[in-house]
Design a protein around this nucleic acid. Structure first.
Lengths: 200, 200
DNA sequence: ATATGAGGATGACGATCATCATCTTGTCAA
DNA sequence: TTGACAAGATGATGATCGTCATCCTCATAT
C-alpha cells in the first residue's frame, strides 16, 4: 500500500513526535521501536524506511523536544518593555516549576528528562543536546536582558537560573508521589528565589 | 565450592559496590546482572542467592550511593566555627563542580546520575531516593546554619543551593567533550554564585 | 495508461538479558 | 567427625528487541 509523499512526510513526523513523547516518559532504553511505530499508528516494519537506526530516531526526537522548548522563552524576549519581560519571566518560572497533572506524568523540559542520560549517549545525540542548550541559554539571556547589565553578567544569570530550575525539577520529580510535601517545598523554594531575583 | 560466612558477606558487598559504580556510569538499563557479577569477580549464577531480583540490587546500589554521598557534607556540619564552615562549604562546592578526570567519567553525585531516571523507577527505589534526598538536605542545612537565620530559611537556602548544583552538574556533564567551553562556563558561573552567597 | 519503485505490512533472525534448574564443593552445626 | 545445606559455577530458557528480508500496493513519472 503505497502512500502519497505528503502522507509519508506526515507519517515520519508522527513517528518522531510519538518517540519524543515516549522517550520523555520512559527513557530511550525502555521504549522499543515497535512501540513507537504503534503509537504513530503504523507497524514496526516500515521503520527503516525513515531511519537508519534507532539511534537516529533518538537524535531526531531530541531535536524536536529541544525545538519545542524554545517557544515560551522566545516570546518573553520579544517583549520590549523590561517590566513586561519581568512579569512574563515570573509566569514562565511558575509554569516550569508547577507540579504536573496527572501526578507522575513526565516533565516536559528536555534538559530534565534527557539530562542525566546524555553522558551515556553517542556523540551526535550529545551534539543535539549541546545545540539545544546553547540556543536555550541565548533565549534565556535575551529574556533577562537589561540595559544596566553587561551581556556576560546576564548570561551568567541565565546559566544560574536555568541550572536551579533544572535541578529543582529533577529533584522534585524524583520524589513526587512518595513525598509530595518535599516536592512542593523544592518547587516553591526555588520558584520564590528566582522570581525574587529575576522576575517580579 | 562453599564459602565462609564472612566471605559471603564480603561478596555481597562487592556486588553492590560494583553495581553502584556501573549503574552510575551507564544507568540501570545498560548494565546486565552478569556484568555486575563479573565486575565483582564472580559468575552470574550466584546472583539470586543474594538478591530476589535485579530491582532489589538497584535499590541497594542506590542506598549505598546516597549513603556515601553524605560524608563530605556531614564533616562540614561538624565544624563549630561559622567561618570554618563557610570555607569548608566553598571547598565542597568547588569539588562538586569540578570537571571529572578523565573527561567523560561519571559524576559521583547520585542525584545527578539517578535523578532523571527516578520518575520511571518503582516505588521502593524512589523511596530510597526520597530518603537520600531528605538526609542530604538535612546535612546541607546543618552545614549552612547560622544563628541569625531561622531554620526554615536555612533549609530553603539548602534546597536552592542543592538544586543549582544538581542542575549545573547535569547540564555540564551533558556537554562535556562536545563543548568544553560551555561546560566550564556552567560550572564556574554556578560555583561563583554559590560561594558568593553561602561560602567564602 | 502503465511501469516502476517508494512506503508499508508481515514475519523472522540473532543478540541480549533476567531468571531459574542443576550440579558441585567445602563450611559449620551436631 | 560427619552430614546437611549454603554459596557459587555452568548452562538453559523464555522474553524482549533491534534489524532485516520479503512481499504487496498504489502514487507518480513518463
Amino acid at each position: 500500500m503505497r502512500i502519497s509523499k505528503a502522507q509519508t512526510r506526515e507519517n515520519k513526523a508522527r513517528i518522531v513526535a510519538a518517540a519524543a513523547q515516549l522517550f520523555r516518559e520512559r527513557g530511550f532504553e525502555r521504549v522499543g521501536v515497535a512501540e513507537v511505530m504503534q503509537a504513530a499508528g503504523l507497524t514496526h516494519g516500515g521503520f527503516y524506511n525513515h531511519f537508519d537506526s534507532k539511534k537516529q530516531l533518538e537524535e531526531e526526537a531530541c531535536t524536536l523536544s529541544f525545538g519545542e522548548a524554545l517557544g515560551p522563552l522566545s516570546r518573553i524576549g520579544e517583549l520590549d518593555s523590561r517590566r513586561r519581560r519581568r512579569a512574563a519571566f515570573a509566569a514562565y518560572v511558575e509554569g516550569y516549576l508547577r507540579q504536573r497533572e496527572p501526578a507522575g506524568s513526565a516533565p516536559r523540559c528536555p534538559f530534565v528528562v534527557f539530562g542525566s542520560d546524555m553522558p551515556r549517549q553517542d556523540e551526535r545525540t550529545r551534539g543535539v543536546f549541546g545545540k539545544g542548550l546553547r540556543d536555550y541559554l541565548d533565549k534565556f539571556a535575551n529574556a533577562l536582558r537589561r540595559k544596566s547589565k553587561k551581556p556576560e553578567e546576564t548570561r551568567a544569570d541565565a546559566i544560574f537560573a536555568l541550572a536551579a530550575m533544572v535541578g529543582a525539577s529533577t529533584l522534585a520529580y524524583g520524589v513526587d508521589e512518595i513525598d509530595k510535601e518535599l516536592a512542593q517545598d523544592i518547587r516553591t523554594s526555588v520558584r520564590e528565589r528566582l522570581i525574587d531575583e529575576f522576575g517580579e
